[in-house]
Computed example of a mutant assay.
Amino acid sequence: MAYARHQSFYIRDKWFSKGLREVKRNSRFLLEEGSFEKIGLGKNMLEALKYWLLALGVINEIQKHGQRSHELTKLGNYFFENDKLLQKPETLAILHYNLVRNKEDQSTIFEWFFNVYKETSVSKPDLIHSFTTWVEQREPKAISEKTLKRDLDCLIQFYAKGPNENDPEDMIFSPFSSLSLIKVEKSGEGFDRIKKKSLSIENIGTLALYYVLLEYAENKKVDLISIDEILNGDFLWGKVFNFSRNKAVEALNLLAEDQKKPIQYVRTNNLDYIKVPKLSPTELLEVGVNEGVLK
């Protein structure tokens, strides 16, 4: 498991597009001396940018000509070509899902908070205590509480640090704040309440919801997914987006009406399932681009 590799910096507005552009131009950019000056960031910020691009699943680290370098993934290329400024909710929702999915074990705090931790409203001290206890039960070596607190602080800012309405030139906000997944309620120093929020379907986009279902089906090698799984299963809507049953059913009805690749309802052994078509997540994105969803 990995902790605090973000150097305490949540991703800033425009970092995503700058990072992808430079990696596409020069595969060694994030590793070269002086790159931080060229991109207009501090050294630690550049390290944070590299971390976020890897954790979001839009670049890979590879060995090239005996040297480490980076390349855009298929997902990174799609978003660079179609939404590098992160203006579409579908893009943000898919990237959020990638953090929660934690495929390369780089975003432990995101997986824990959204996929493991069940509370939807908690004081900050209790949240820190819960995360520390969870880590202690799983790590053979001690991880300092200061490190874990930095992870939680960064997670909260990642989703709650929005633009300054009084300063239109403020560029230090997180683009993921527009998802409104986390709300911070001030209640005295050190005792803020952290709340998970349930997103509207419009805030996520049906393309992103479909993408998550297809990823799940591909990883599990299934084409039938129960409604209960969608609500309670790991890395599915109930946990990743804090969906209620009513909202999940509403979204599934929209996907069932898809003109080209609809899902199907199936009832087996008195349980409700949906059947997803033979379609990969990558193919779904191609359909989305062709239909203008990500343009």
Rank of each mutant, 00 (worst) to 15 (best):
D13V: 01
V23A: 04
R25Q: 06
F36C: 04
E37V: 00
I39P: 06
L53N: 11
H65W: 09
G66R: 07
G66C: 05
G76P: 02
D83V: 02
Q87R: 12
N102V: 07
D105L: 05
N115Y: 11
V116R: 15
V122R: 09
S123Q: 12
D126E: 15
D126I: 04
L127H: 04
H129N: 03
T132C: 02
R138I: 03
A142R: 15
A142V: 11
A142Y: 09
K146R: 07
L152R: 06
L152Q: 04
Y159R: 04
P163C: 00
N164E: 10
E169I: 06
D170V: 01
D170F: 14
F173N: 12
F173T: 10
S180F: 05
I182N: 09
K183L: 06
K186D: 15
G190H: 04
R193A: 05
R193T: 15
K196L: 06
K197F: 11
S198A: 12
L199N: 01
I204Q: 03
L213W: 05
L213H: 13
E215I: 01
N219Q: 11
K220T: 02
V222P: 11
L224M: 10
S226H: 09
E229N: 09
G233A: 14
D234L: 01
V240E: 12
N242E: 12
F243H: 00
D258E: 13
K261S: 00
K261L: 01
I263P: 03
I263D: 14
Q264K: 14
T268H: 12
T268D: 15
L271R: 13
L271K: 11
D272L: 08
P277K: 08
P277H: 11
S280H: 07
S280G: 10
T282R: 14
L284R: 14
L285A: 13
G288F: 13
N290H: 05
E291T: 11
